[in-house]
Amino acid sequence: MTTTSPIITVKNLNSHYGERQILKNVNFCVQQGEIRVIMGGSGSGKSTLLNHLLALLVPTSGSINIDDVDVVNADAKTLSNLRQKMGVAFQGGALFSSMTVGENIKLPLKHHTQLDENTIDIMARLKLELMNLAGFEDLMPAELSGGMLKRAGLARAVIMDPKLLFFDEPSAGLDPVTSVELDELILKLRDAMNMTIVVVTHELESAFKIADKITVLFDGEIALTGTVDEIKNSDDIRIQNLINRRSRNEKINAEQYIKRLTTGQG
């Protein structure tokens, strides 16, 4: 795309959960200003990959570099500085249930800036307006619907105007209309604030709509990284299955099937 160095570089990433290997030698780069979708079915390791990018998990081996910071070995101070430039919107919003929506959104500003109360209020209202949540400031998270929680979570993620935004499952559990609205919101954010956005999802439609590039994960391995057209035209059978919503096992091996049923192994 551009000649500038990538904002995210992942090299030879391996990760284990107990004995089980979740990620196998994952490599990819994300450029500045790009919308990257990480796609895969459940159990493909995409959530684990996200947690590694957020430095919530420590990999078995490999390196992750975000905005020139070695995330794996960074000290607390460096990591804290990096995180103030990153926003994360979690699947269920992850708002604090003991605070109002407004207080939730203002939290990062109150912690990391010396801005006065009025400025913080205005900034929070701006972001709520952007997410179509104006007037919901004083409600508790429990009073919001799933879609509103996600948008409120997104508002909190972008309150500090981050360079880099991570979004976990934007359309999971939402009706199609709300889901489309969120997709448009993501595009709007990139255009308005020139953010780099990494979206983890299993929804094809929204992935095709928003992505500049898509990284497809299968069983902890990257099957393919490419543009929307490249993914659509891929001749990898697993990707075609995903696109055409076919089941994973095309043909059943009768002998193995019987063995699995009778012995519980196989």
Partner: peptide, 24 residues
């Protein structure tokens, strides 16, 4: 309450906002 916060990824969210959950 703390267990539900853990379940709802609220501690992950705090980490990602660079807010120290032990302190806060």
């Amino acid at each position: 309450e703390i267990g539900i916060m853990r379940n709802e990824q609220q501690f992950d969210a705090l980490d990602c906002m660079a807010i120290d959950s032990y302190h806060y």
